[in-house]
Amino acid sequence: MRLHHRHIGQILDSGRDRRSQAVYLISPLYQPGSLHLQQRASAGVSLKRSLQVLDQVLAGLQAAAASGIIHPDIKPQNIVLDGPANIRIIDWGMSQLHQAGKSVSTVSPAAPSGSPAPSSSASPAPHPARCPTCTASAPWPTGC
């Protein structure tokens, strides 16, 4: 499965290290960097800019959820700026694909290009599936 959305970071390729067998993903270098680095470098962020970033993050998460993919690790380090006004969500390596009541890891070294592809190994459901207030229409609730 590939996700193509302006607020989702692209995965160019993937593979497995021959020695350690660790899976790796290759993505573009987005500049000026992560939201985390921007927060540390500035004295503050305006409410208007904060709402713009939030709107873009939610749009990216909504597009992923519509494809059955949930990103369980949304944090400033996993949100990068792609130019002065656009953000992208990265680090989909831990994401989960939900199909027919099953959860599978989305990291697959045999599926280069695009965004995360499902592997055949089963993995536990991410936090939203365990949260009693979660629904299919809102896989990233607050307060869980």
Score class of each variant (00 low, 15 high):
M1K: 07
M1H: 08
H5R: 07
H5Y: 06
I11R: 11
I11W: 04
L12G: 06
D13G: 11
G15I: 02
G15E: 02
D17N: 14
D17P: 05
Q21G: 10
A22R: 14
Y24L: 06
P28R: 14
P28K: 12
Y30C: 08
P32D: 07
G33V: 09
L37S: 15
S42N: 14
A43T: 09
V45E: 10
V45R: 14
K48F: 11
D55G: 04
A59I: 02
L61W: 00
Q62R: 15
A63V: 05
A64H: 02
A65E: 09
A65F: 04
G68A: 03
H71K: 03
H71P: 02
D73Y: 02
P76Y: 05
N78E: 07
I79W: 01
L81Y: 15
G83V: 09
A85K: 09
Q99R: 15
A100W: 00
V104C: 09
S105E: 13
S108D: 15
A110F: 08
G114E: 13
S115Y: 07
S115F: 09
P116L: 08
A117M: 06
P118F: 13
S121N: 11
A122T: 11
S123E: 13
S123H: 05
P124N: 13
P124T: 10
P126R: 05
H127C: 03
P128R: 10
A129V: 09
A129F: 12
C131W: 00
C134V: 10
A138I: 07
P139H: 00
P141N: 07
